[in-house]
């Protein structure tokens, strides 16, 4: 069990104005560890996160999990979870059915699925709200659902892209602590991208700074 190893990863975007968003970054995340990637907007941290998860193509370098090269493994086979800034909940599904999406993809039996959804609702403090439409939720509640949805299929690694930035300052502070505790309770390795140093300090066990596509 060595966890995640990112090896000299390069991400370039083509088009009229080609840019190198990630310029040879290497890092590791051990199992159970939460690493924060801290940097200003446009420094390439989200591209790096996308490359780790598999939604951004890697132009050079490797993404390795437990000595297995997953660089060319498609996103849905990689077993890495992802939480976006604005949740990206499925508007046509209830809270519970959002959380159970990943479990459906694993074709889990219905009883196990129900149990796991209840367990996660409790973990993120949304007991009893399973049948709500996600459109009725507050911003903070939505991010809790997004977190629960990503944790449900028990990902090997959870990637969080500015998970709290869309929330107001007061809520952000409280939720940062909660997210840390939830991740600790789940025992999942996590990589958090943020531009807020205080948030990084609260959530992460280790903070890496990024600038112009490189680690500082």
């Amino acid at each position: 069990m060595t966890g995640l190893r990112v090896d000299n990863v390069v991400v370039r975007y083509g088009g009229a104005h080609p840019v190198t968003a990630v310029d040879g970054v290497s890092l590791t995340v051990a199992p159970g560890e939460t690493v924060a990637l801290l940097g200003p907007s446009g420094c390439g941290k989200s591209s790096l996160l996308g490359a780790v998860v598999g939604i951004v193509d890697v132009d050079a370098g490797q993404v390795v999990w437990d000595d297995e090269d997953v660089t060319d493994v498609e996103v849905h086979r990689r077993g890495f979870g992802l939480v976006f800034q604005d949740g990206q909940l499925f508007p046509h599904r209830s809270v519970a059915r959002n959380i159970s999406f990943g479990l459906e993809m694993q074709r889990l039996p219905a009883t196990d699925k129900r149990a796991r959804v209840l367990e996660l609702l409790e973990l993120v403090g949304l007991d009893g709200l399973g049948d709500r439409p996600v459109t009725d939720l507050s911003g903070g509640q939505r991010q809790r659902v997004a977190l629960a949805r990503s944790l449900a299929p028990q990902p090997r690694l959870l990637a969080l892209d500015e998970p709290l930035s869309a929330l107001d300052a007061d809520l952000r502070g409280r939720l940062a602590i909660e997210v840390r505790d939830i991740l600790a309770a789940a025992g999942t390795a996590a990589l958090v991208v943020t531009h807020d140093p205080a948030e990084a300090e609260v959530m992460a066990t280790r903070v890496l700074r990024m600038r112009d596509g490189r680690l500082a």
Partner: peptide, 27 residues
């Protein structure tokens, strides 16, 4: 439909085909 919603479904284990049937088509 936000491309990141498709990415979110993919990260939850949905293949491109299932992203279409479970997320895009319902919308």
């Amino acid at each position: 439909i936000d491309p990141r919603m498709r990415a979110a479904a993919g990260a939850l284990g949905a293949s491109p085909g299932r992203v279409w049937t479970r997320v895009e088509w319902p919308l």
